[in-house]
Amino acid sequence: MIVFEFIINAISVGSLYALIALGLVIIYGILKMVNFAYGELIMVGGYLLYLVGANTNIPWLIAAVIAVVGAMVVSYLTELVAFRKVREKSLTALLITTFAVSTLLQNSALIIISPRAKAVALPQIFSTTITIFNITTSMRNILTIVVSIAMLVGLTFLFRNTILGIALRAAADDFQMTRMLGVPANLVISSAFVLSGAIAGVVSLFWIGRTASVTPTIGLGPLLIAFVATVIGGMRSLVGAVVGGFVYGLIFSFIGVLLPQVLLDYREAFMFLIVILILLLRPEGLVRVKYAQERVG
């Protein structure tokens, strides 16, 4: 039964990682921009959860909604205030801007709240366990899986069936052409940021749910996960990001059990070594696109 418990745990980690990766790739696909401030959106969600929980009697579920909406708003604002102005310049300038925005948000949290970790109140359900068919697991794992899958299904629907979703995918294929069909550039980009923020907000609920605390640097972990996952799965496609997230979550869980402690210390280093190797040897990642890509130049 231990094996099943382990598997559920691994799936929970995998589905959360898939979501984390998807939030980063939505932006990357369209702007070819790696958003270093992505982790800070998760931080924003975490702090909103903390602020609402510590200062009001609002139920957790509503606090969660506030956290998600907050992350969406901040994501939208970072684009509006900073990235939009640098977008047309060089990619390097854009990447540095995202890094600067990351630093800005982190240190704003330092000033406004505190450099020390803040405890976040969680609903009862996060700490209960459940036993089905003799398999005991935490409700948090089940919730993570259910909500992540629901998010993925919802996003799939959005991307497949709504005109906005189709426009977002088209923009990732060929941004200029999308505009030539009458789709406003800013609409596409802003929507991508809002979606990315929404995903980060949902992720923050479960990420905070694991430690029940939030610090200004909490976003670095998810950011690194997103990097590894997207590179494994392939940065070009949304499906690739999800697959990469799952694969990484599973690898991560297995490594945790299998590797001796000495090597476990270097787990991160190993993961990033894999990232480098994949980028060198198979830059398109695990998920190949089904058609020949025209290479420019």
Partner: peptide
Amino acid sequence: RLSDAAAAITSFALLIIIHAV
């Protein structure tokens, strides 16, 4: 060999690896 985003991610990965070591 890498440029743009791939170069940025690999060199960031390199920083993480050096730090981890």
